Structure formats: C-alpha cells, structure tokens
Lab assay of single mutants.
Amino acid sequence: MDVFMKGLSKAKEGVVAAAEKTKQGVAEAAGKTKEGVLYVGSKTKEGVVHGVATVAEKTKEQVTNVGGAVVTGVTAVAQKTVEGAGSIAAATGFVKKDQLGKNEEGAPQEGILEDMPVDPDNEAYEMPSEEGYQDYEPEA
C-alpha cells in the first residue's frame, strides 16, 4: 500500500510541476504579447503594419512553449490582441483601416495563427491545408 501511495504522490508532483510550467509559459506569452502591443503603439504610420505582424510573430513563438489545451486559448487571445492593436492603430490615425491585415508588401496577414497546427491532446499534428499553395516548377 505504501508503494501505491508513494507512486500516487510522485504522479501528483509531476502534474503540479507540469501545471506550473504551463502557467509560466502562458505568463511569458502574455508578456511578449504586451511587449508587441507597446511596440505597435510606438510606431509611426509606416511601421504600424509591420508592428502588428511582430506582435503576432512574438506571440506565436511563445505559444510553442505552452502545451496542451492552453495553446488553443493563448492563440485565440493573441489573435484578438493583434486585431485590437490594429483597431487602436486605425482609431489613433497611425494607419488607414484599409491597410490593416496586410503586410508591407500588401499581402493579407489573416491566418497567421489560424494555420498553425495545434492539437490540445498532444496526440497528432496535421499540416495546414494546401489550398493556398501553388506547385513550383523550376525553369529549365
């Protein structure tokens, strides 16, 4: 019985440690998101679009440190934060509304985080759909 109880105690310690790591990862992701939003706020009209992409990228980098179902929630929060940063930029006159959601080359930025393969159960990952990809044929 002692062996059984000791095993359960060790398992509990492992769960607590994993929860603490997840909590730490979420806190880091939130900190990076805040950094990115402050970065966007300090940019001029020309830099705002690039700044919004930076927020998304920093958040995406930190999301990889967070495991399990938390990833889905962090990704949703990050996307809403990026959308909010863009709205703030438009409201303050840093950028025109028609410039939001495009990178410096004018290509749409939507789907940055949505296409990231995420499995809350950590069982399997699927690649994003290939609808947006084109076949590449090298020139002879």
Rank of each mutant, 00 (worst) to 15 (best):
A124P: 06
T59N: 01
Y133C: 11
A90G: 02
A56S: 08
G36Y: 12
E104Q: 10
V16T: 07
A29S: 02
Y125T: 10
F94W: 15
E28A: 06
E35W: 10
A91S: 04
N122Y: 09
A29Q: 02
T33C: 02
G84M: 15
G68C: 03
S42F: 11
T72Q: 12
A69S: 05
I112M: 06
T92L: 12
I88N: 02
G7Q: 09
D115T: 11
G68L: 13
A78Y: 15
P117M: 07
L113S: 10
G36E: 03
V71T: 05
V26S: 00
G14P: 01
P128G: 06
L100Q: 08
P120F: 07
D2N: 15
A89Q: 04
G25L: 13
E126T: 06
G7F: 05
H50D: 06
Q99N: 13
A124F: 13
T81G: 04
V63L: 08
S42D: 03
E35T: 11
G73T: 14
Y125K: 11
T81Q: 03
A27Q: 14
K96W: 15
A53G: 06
M116G: 03
A140C: 11
T22L: 05
Y39S: 06
T72L: 12
E139C: 02
G84S: 11
T75A: 15
Q109M: 04
A85K: 03
D135W: 07
M5W: 05
S9I: 13
A53R: 07
K23H: 05
Q79I: 09
Y125N: 11
V66M: 12
K45M: 15
V66L: 10
Y133M: 10
E35Y: 13
N103S: 08
K12W: 11
A78V: 12
Q134Y: 07
A29M: 14
V52I: 04
T22C: 08
A90I: 06
T59A: 05
A69D: 03
V74W: 14
Y125A: 03
N103Q: 07
K60P: 01
K80N: 04
V37P: 00
K96Q: 07
E61L: 07
G47S: 15
V77E: 02
A30N: 00
A19H: 05
E139L: 05
D119E: 07
V55F: 09
D98E: 11
K45D: 00
S87R: 03
S129A: 05
N122D: 09
T54R: 15
N65Y: 07
A30Q: 01
E35P: 01
Q24P: 00
E123S: 11
L100I: 05
V16A: 04
G111Q: 13
A107E: 06
A140H: 06
T81E: 02
N103W: 13
K96C: 15
T64I: 14
T81S: 07
K102Q: 02
P128T: 07
L100G: 07
N122I: 07
K80Q: 06
A91Y: 12
N122R: 13
L100F: 02
F4D: 00
G51K: 07
K97A: 09
M1N: 00
Q99F: 13
V77L: 13
K32V: 11
K34T: 02
E114N: 11
V26D: 00
K23V: 05
V16H: 07
T54S: 12
L38G: 02
Q109R: 10
D135R: 09
L8D: 00
K60V: 09
N103V: 11
A124E: 10
S42H: 08
A17I: 06
G51D: 01
E13I: 04
E139S: 11
G51L: 09
G132N: 15
P108E: 14
G67F: 11
A89R: 07
G111K: 12
F94V: 03
A85Y: 14
M1Y: 00
E139T: 03
G106R: 06
E139F: 14
N122P: 08
D119C: 12
L38F: 13
G51M: 15
T75S: 08
K58G: 00
D119Q: 14
D135T: 08
E83V: 11
M127N: 10
V40A: 05
L113R: 09
V49P: 02
T33N: 00
E114F: 12
G36Q: 14
A30G: 01
M127V: 12
A91F: 11
E130A: 06
K97W: 15
V3P: 00
M116H: 14
A11G: 02
G51T: 11
G41I: 05
A76K: 12
D115E: 12
G41Q: 06
K10Q: 04
A140M: 06
G36N: 15
G93Y: 08
A124W: 10
A56P: 01
V95P: 08
E131H: 07
V71Y: 04
G25H: 15
D121H: 11
A27H: 06
A19T: 02
V16P: 00
E28R: 09
A19D: 00
D2E: 01
N103C: 07
P108T: 14
E105I: 01
V37K: 01
E46V: 07
E13Y: 13
G47E: 04
E20W: 06
Y136K: 09
F4N: 00
A89V: 13
T81I: 09
V63E: 01
